[in-house]
C-alpha cells in the first residue's frame, strides 16, 4: 500500500469503521447511563441558596479555594489543553469542512497561523501535564494504564496534525494519513474509556449538584 492508498483508506473504510464504532459506543453508553434510574428520594427537599445543578456546573469549573496554588499544573495546564483542543478541533478550516460534510452545518474558521500557534501551546500543555503526572508521586500512584493510554490517544492527533502542517519527519501525505488514523483510534477508544467525560461531564455535574441541592448541600 502506498501513502495515497493509505490516505484514501483512512478517509474511506477506516473512517467508516471508526465513526461506526464511535457512534455505537456513544449511543450505547448514553442509553445505559440514563437508563439506570435512581431510587426515589423520599426526604423533603431543602432549599439552600447556591445548591443546585446549575450552580455546581459552574462551581466545579473553577478551582476551589487554595487548590490553584496547590496544584497549578493540573488546573492551568488542564484548562489550556482543553481549550486548545477545542480551538484546534472546531476552528481549523479543514476540520470545519469535515464537520460540514458529516452534519451539513459550517461556521467560520480562524487563520491557520493562529491555529498553528494554539496547537503548539496545546502540545506543550499536554506534555507539561504528563510530566507532572510522572513527577508527582501521588499522581503517579493513582495513575492506571487507562490514564497513560488516553493521554497518548489524545496527544497523537494533535501532534500528527501539527507535524503534517509543518511538514516534519514524513511527507505530508503520510503524515496526514497518520493524523486521520490517530483520530480514528481516538474515536474508537473514546466511548469506552474515561474520555467519555466529553459526553457525561456536564450531565453528571448537573446531576450531582441537583441531588445534593435537594439535600441542602452545595457541592
Amino acid at each position: 500500500m502506498n501513502e495515497m492508498q493509505f490516505l484514501t483508506w483512512v478517509r474511506g473504510t477506516g473512517l467508516n469503521i471508526a465513526l461506526g464504532i464511535f457512534l455505537l459506543g456513544v449511543i450505547w453508553r448514553l442509553i445505559e447511563i440514563y437508563g439506570l434510574g435512581r431510587k426515589k428520594d423520599l426526604s423533603a427537599p431543602r432549599n439552600v441558596s447556591g445548591a443546585s445543578g446549575w450552580n455546581t456546573m459552574f462551581r466545579r469549573s473553577v478551582p476551589p479555594e487554595g487548590m490553584l496554588k496547590k496544584s497549578p499544573v493540573s488546573y492551568i495546564g488542564g484548562y489550556i489543553f482543553h481549550l486548545g483542543l477545542f480551538v484546534v478541533l472546531f476552528l481549523f478550516a479543514p476540520h470545519i469542512k469535515f464537520f460540514e460534510s458529516l452534519l451539513g452545518i459550517s461556521w467560520p474558521g480562524l487563520p491557520s497561523q493562529f491555529i498553528d500557534l494554539v496547537a503548539v501551546v496545546t502540545i506543550a500543555a499536554m506534555v507539561v501535564v504528563l510530566v507532572d503526572r510522572i513527577n508527582k508521586p501521588v499522581k503517579r500512584y493513582l495513575s492506571t494504564f487507562e490514564d497513560w493510554f488516553t493521554w497518548l490517544v489524545t496527544f497523537l492527533p494533535v501532534l500528527t496534525g501539527w507535524m503534517a502542517v509543518q511538514h516534519l519527519l514524513l511527507p505530508y501525505t503520510t503524515m496526514l494519513a497518520l493524523h486521520i488514523l490517530s483520530v480514528e483510534i481516538l474515536l474508537i477508544v473514546l466511548p469506552f474509556t474515561k474520555l467519555f467525560h466529553a459526553f457525561t461531564l456536564w450531565g453528571s455535574r448537573w446531576y450531582n449538584g441537583q441531588v445534593n441541592g435537594h439535600k441542602g448541600v452545595a457541592v
Binding site: 484514501t8 467508516n16 465513526l19 461506526g20 469535515f98 496526514l176
Partner: peptide, 19 residues
C-alpha cells in the same frame, strides 16, 4: 476536500442502531 470522507459512511446509521 481532502479532509472530507472519501466514501459515503454506510456503516454509521447501522452502527447507531446497533448501539
Amino acid at each position: 476536500a481532502l479532509s472530507m470522507p472519501a466514501d459515503p459512511l454506510k456503516m454509521v446509521s447501522a452502527a447507531a442502531a446497533v448501539g
